[in-house]
Amino acid sequence: MYTIKDLEKIASQVRRDILRMVHGVASGHVGGPLGSADFLVALYFDTMQPDPSIFSMDGTGEDIFFLSNGHLSAAWYSVLARYGYFDVKELTTFRKMGSRLQGHPAVKEGLPGIRMSSGSLGQGLSVAIGAALAKKLNADEHLVWCLMGDGELEEGQNWEALMFAAARKVDNLIAVVDYNGQQIDGPVNDIMPLGDLTAKFEAFGWKVLTLYGNDMAEVIGTLKKAQWFTFQEQPVIIVMTTHMGYGVDFMMDNHEWHGIPPSDEQLARALGQLEETLGDY
């Protein structure tokens, strides 16, 4: 059982990992991963608490997670390693040739904790729905979680999936939208405004919760609340507002930090703002 303080410390270390991984290979994404770190830490260390030692592709008998916006890989890999799926030293191999830590999550290399390749956007929610249906068919009363990006909602397949899950009452599923308001070319509101997401999801038949995703106590509380709403003949979705680049002042809310690596000097400045809590890898 971790306290809020413990989880915040882990999140700080995850943020350091993200920056050092991307800097180490001079390639990758930092903005989205920094923003989603609190959620991923809360989900693994508090909400799901899966057992890494019995990881199986089928995920029978435990809650399972899918990352639809695969470019958040650095955050996910760090959380998986810090949680015990593999040695944190392996984080040094991120995006390098021969690594199990591919640029975007992949199953081919057999990295424990990953069940689906992602990166090409808009596909994760459908996959999560399929896994949730399999759990129902197997009478496995565990949940399926799926994190999606906000810009990713521009992909039409999401809306097919949203329609389906409500119509078929896939109520063992919790989707989370990382609503940081930024995408590659600029603010989401300029590129393709999403409008009132809560109203849209409700109109599609989902139970909608909102959350500020960079406050650990609020994240923990809302994820618990979301679980209460499962198995009530309705899928659940959380619109989670975050700051892209959270934790590093000069990266915050700036879409230009979507997919560029920090320089040596920028890394030093960024790490200066994040406490080393578990020891760098």
Partner: peptide, 26 residues
């Protein structure tokens, strides 16, 4: 009927759901 899934005219979603169903041994 319990093993038949009508997805409507949404083939992309169908492929994703099918992929997900394999996770769970289907």
């Amino acid at each position: 009927p319990e093993r038949f899934i009508q997805v409507g005219i949404a083939e992309a979603n169908m492929m994703g759901i099918a992929a997900g169903l394999t996770i769970g041994g289907k």
